[in-house]
Nucleic acid binder design. Structure first.
Lengths: 151, 151
DNA sequence: TATTGTTATACTCTATAACTATA
DNA sequence: TATAGTTATAGAGTATAACAATA
């Protein structure tokens, strides 16, 4: 009628942003648990995926792409080198650059991480049904692309 | 034909789990930035939302519902009390219990947090289009309910 | 001088354990 | 004894800043 504004008093917990944050944290925790047995944390897996995609090689490029500081990449690369998952060589053309390459063992570990993520996907899909699960997958793919995420 | 297994070599970065984790972290960061001006972090907002819903009142109940330790709730309640967002009173029936109640100022701050989340929602929806945005919202609502999240 | 990687240090968030008071 | 809350301490993860090597 008049004066009655359409005040949509949405609850914080009902927003997409809040649910994306909380469900994302839960999922990340479960992923971390699943890959911990291999001595890996989520950032190790992300780094391996990045090397496998060929999108980055030097530690600076990796830091920029992953949006973390170069000093963090040093530690991640140390760990992965110790696990035999990556090789680390000075670039002959610019000896300041450390070029990381994923090894066969690194591909194995990445596959193990992917399997953990895939199992989580199936669990999520089972709780949704086929059509909503596909819609979720498509929506997240779009948002990931728009956010400039690698993959 | 024969011997050719259906090896679905999905990439880690293409899984729903990985994208949910990364997009969730990005969204949580942006939410944190948006509410920081009010002196709040995400957990403060979650606690206010919990009090507003009436689902918990004592610090132990809050800790259980938010899946954090009681000692963390002490600090959050300290902060919110100092901001005038919550009242804290001993339960007369059991003087061990501290009962938190959200104040008028608390409702204001919660509304400010909700507005930040709502703005993020609109930005996410704008990047998707109406139908996929609605599908995302519905899927996350279902997953949130199945994960036992408050709201 | 500028850049890459490294090291040293500090900060944030959270949990664990010990403690106080009530029951 | 058991429980609610608090305090003290420790750990994980990350960033910032200073540094060494190379350009």
């Amino acid at each position: 009628m008049w004066g009655v504004k359409d005040v949509k008093q949405e609850k914080l917990t009902d927003t997409v942003a809040f649910r994306l944050g909380t469900l994302g944290a839960i999922t990340a925790d479960r992923f971390a648990e699943g890959i911990a047995v291999h001595g890996l944390r989520a950032k190790h897996a992300g780094l391996l995926a990045l090397l496998a995609s060929g999108a980055a090689a030097s530690q600076q490029e990796i830091a920029r792409t992953m949006k973390v500081t170069p000093s963090l990449v040093v530690g991640l690369a140390d760990d992965l080198e110790e696990l035999g998952a990556v090789g680390r060589e000075r670039d002959p053309d610019d000896r300041r650059r450390q070029v990381l390459t994923i090894t066969g063992r690194g591909h194995e570990l990445l596959a193990a991480c992917t399997a953990v993520a895939h199992a989580l996907d199936e669990e999520l899909a089972a709780g949704l049904g086929d059509a909503p699960a596909a819609a979720l997958r498509d929506a997240l793919a779009l948002l990931a692309a728009r956010s400039g995420l690698p993959g």
